[in-house]
Structure formats: C-alpha cells, structure tokens
Simulated scan of single mutants.
Amino acid sequence: MKANKATVLTFAEKCKSILSSNWQGQLNTIKADAKGSKEDIYTSKVKYICKRGKPYLWVPEKELHNVNVVVDERCSFAVTNPIPGPLASLLRSLRKTPPRIALTGEVVPLTEEKVQSATKVLREVIWSEQKAMSESSYTVSGILSSSDHSCTSRSESLKELLEAESSVFISMSDCDYPRVRSCMYVDGSGDTHKIDTEDMAASKADLLAPLSAKLIDGINQSAARRRALMLFCCSYLNANAKDAYVLSIDRKGFEVLSKVPSPGFKDGFGQFEWKEFRLSLKEEARDVEAFCRQLVEMEEEAVKEVSGHSGLA
C-alpha cells in the first residue's frame, strides 16, 4: 500500500518528531587539548530535551565534550527513532535500523540564566508526560501500561538529570542565530534525505511523538493488538500476515512491519518475508486519545469484515 504525500509526514516533520520522541542521542565533538583541535572524534551518549524544537543537551561535567567545545564548537548530533521491546530485537535480526537523524553545526555553553530556563523546561517535560498518563482514558492507559516502563518512560529517564551535576549546552541553535549547518534524515532502508534547514526550523513535531515509544511498545507487547494488526493487513491491505508489529506512529497513520508470504508463495504456504505497510487514519489524530480511539475503531471494523467474509457475521 503506497501512501501519498497527503497521508504522510514530510521529512522535516519526521526529523522534528524523532527529536521529540527520544531523550538521548549520540554527540560527536572534535578532540582538543591545550595545543588546539585534533582530527579524532570523541563520541558519547547524552540526554536532552527539546524546547521549541531545539535540543538542549545535558553533558556530565567530567565529559571530554566540555573541553572539546571550548576549543572547537563544531559537532554532530545523531538521534534514533526509539523502538524498544520485541520490535528492537526483530529489527536487529533482520539487520534493519530504525529511522534516525543527524544534525551538524556548533554548540555553545548556556548562560546561568538559560541553564535555569532549561531546567524549568525539563521539569515541565517530566510533568507533562506523567500528567498525560495519569489522565488518560481506560483504552489509552491499557496500551501505555503494556509497555516496558524502564525502556519507554522518558520522564523516568530524565528525572536523574535534576539531581546530577552537569553542564548544559544549547545544541546547534541559539535564540539569536541558527547554528544548524545541515540536517539529514536516514530512513529504515539506509537511504539519506537532506533536509533544508529552513524547512526544519518551520516544521513542528507531531503531537504524538512524546509518547510514541510507549504507544508502539504497548501495542507490540499485546498479543491481542498484534492479532488486530494482522487483521488490518488482511482487511485493508489484502495481505495474509502471519505476524505483525507497529513500526512507527504519527498523527496521520502508522507503519506496520508484517510477516507475509514471499512472492510466488501467495497461497500462504512456503517462505515468508517481513514487509512494511502504511495505514492511514480517517482523520488526523491531534492527541494520543484520538489516535487510540481510531485504532480501536479500526480493530472493530476489521473484526466485522473478517467475520463477515467467514460467514460468522
């Protein structure tokens, strides 16, 4: 099923959504010492939050990055679309990688005033996720509670930053002028797409992004919901799936990774392959509640259709 442009996010929107869905990325800086910049690259994982689409990075005080950026501000920052749980293991076995983005530019240390502002945003991010979970409906809470909390809770992962002694950087953008030099989107097949920095700045993150990791894992951890995904393949895509996982979600729809018969074995016997499909929502989901409501409606419709075809309706 090939989705048209109206039913998918733009690459710039996908980049913003990946930034908003994750909370840690890979920071690369150029090694430096008292004699100046070196050619070697120093790499480590750092945690971050997004404020108005811009990543604020927390770098431990003893990290070499702190020395490097004083001498050479150039850096790159890579963030992967978070895919935890059984789907992550499956992708590794298939030698597939989740979509990811790579930003290049410069970083500067924050002033004390901006450190306080970033810390305030950090508290707001943690509070907003916890609030969304506590006030969610029965359907939404059922999906979220099925996920692996230790791997998908952004709020829990960021809480330790409130107590840790760390330096804070505003990564590759400032309120006065842009510091992003390039942005690249790398899809699951490894194909790269260069994003115009102006498009990136103008785009907004998908509103589902902050809880997307929990939603994806919650659906994939549920045997009943995975059976529903298989029904979707049958009802909406005319594909005889033997297994299925949600690969990604957004306000316009979601991608499903399904185990279907290989070409030449369409009778359901023989070899199988994992193939990606796109399913569009009837209307854009402005929040998690709307997405889950439409997901349940699709499940009910798929059950009715399959039951009707089997003479059970």
Rank of each mutant, 00 (worst) to 15 (best):
M1S: 11
N4F: 08
T10E: 02
A12D: 01
E13A: 00
S17M: 00
S21T: 00
Q26R: 14
Q26L: 15
L27R: 02
T29G: 02
K35A: 13
S37G: 04
K38H: 14
E39C: 05
T43W: 06
S44C: 14
K47N: 15
C50V: 11
R52P: 03
G53K: 09
V59F: 04
L64I: 11
N68W: 04
D72V: 08
E73R: 11
E73W: 04
C75S: 00
F77G: 07
F77T: 07
V79P: 05
P82K: 04
P86A: 09
R92S: 15
R95S: 06
T97I: 03
P98M: 04
L103E: 03
T104Y: 06
G105N: 10
L110V: 12
E113K: 06
E113I: 07
K114W: 00
A118C: 11
T119Q: 12
L122A: 03
V125I: 12
I126H: 06
M133L: 08
T139R: 15
V140S: 08
V140L: 14
S141D: 08
G142D: 09
I143K: 06
D148H: 11
H149K: 14
C151P: 02
T152R: 00
S153H: 09
E156N: 09
E156R: 10
L158Y: 02
L161Q: 07
S173V: 10
S173Q: 13
S173G: 08
D174S: 13
D176Y: 09
R181E: 14
M184N: 09
G190W: 03
D191L: 12
T192E: 15
K194L: 13
A201C: 05
A205R: 07
G218K: 00
N220R: 01
N220Q: 04
A223I: 11
R225D: 12
A228L: 01
L229F: 03
L229I: 00
F232N: 03
C233S: 10
C234R: 12
Y245D: 04
V246E: 07
R251C: 13
F254D: 01
S258W: 02
S258A: 15
S262E: 13
P263Q: 05
G264L: 08
F265G: 05
R278D: 05
L279I: 15
K282F: 13
D287C: 11
V288L: 15
E289K: 07
Q294M: 11
E297V: 09
E297G: 09
E299G: 03
V303F: 13
G308D: 13
H309A: 15
